[in-house]
């Protein structure tokens, strides 16, 4: 049980994919939802999709790819699994309520965190339960950083900063400092 807790908390803190691999920077370099809540929803939808994709990917790998010696098709399989899941999510969320971020599924699909987390979870963990918990932790890690950066940027004090620092430069410096802080947890366990 402690192992699962370590995987879950590690994914959020010291193994956070944004911090360790610089994955999932798309919302900061491209398009990000406008509010903290919408960023949280984006992160949670990404997490749910990643966990389902990892479960399907693990099953396909252990039942089809490894027995048939087709492991070199793993990345292609994972991309196809994600595409099917994203198409399903787009259908389900077609009539999404107004409080949800616009173009939610497109935002998830253009974010490398989704595919990156699926690949890393399958590479790292041993059994199915470990893989799913690792994916859940890594997905939650992306959610936490999205919410944190938006919450910092929404604070009124940021309006006092010089114009040349606002926007993307501030986001990157904030992310960098959060990354350094999170790396400080790496001694746990």
């Amino acid at each position: 049980m402690a192992e699962f807790g370590y995987l879950l908390i590690g994914g959020v803190l010291w193994n956070n994919v944004i911090v360790t691999h610089l994955l999932g920077l798309y919302p900061f370099l491209g398009e990000r939802p406008a509010t903290v809540a919408q960023n949280g929803i984006l992160g949670l939808v990404t997490t749910v999709l990643v966990v389902v994709a990892v479960t399907a990917g693990f099953a396909l790998r252990s039942m089809v790819l490894v027995p048939m010696e087709l492991i070199y098709l793993e990345h292609l399989t994972l991309v196809l699994v994600l595409i099917v899941l994203l198409a399903g999510a787009a259908r389900v969320l077609r009539r999404a309520p107004a409080w949800m971020p616009e173009h939610l599924v497109l935002r998830v699909s253009l974010n490398s965190a989704a595919l990156g987390v699926v690949i890393l979870s399958l590479e790292r963990a041993a059994g199915p339960a470990h893989t799913i918990v690792a994916a859940l932790g890594l997905g939650l890690g992306v959610t936490v950083l999205l919410v944190l950066v938006e919450a910092i940027e929404e604070r009124p004090e940021t309006k006092l900063l010089p114009a040349w620092l606002r926007g993307m430069p501030l986001q990157f410096m904030t992310l960098g400092m959060i990354a350094l802080a999170l790396q400080g947890f790496s001694g746990i366990g």
Binding site: H21, W164, F172, A179
Partner: peptide, 20 residues
């Protein structure tokens, strides 16, 4: 990873300052 985000942020800030 942490340091390079600060470096990229600083370079972007310089670029933004020059543009402004």
């Amino acid at each position: 990873p942490g340091g390079v985000l600060i470096v990229v942020g600083s370079l972007l800030a310089v670029g933004q300052a020059l543009r402004l």
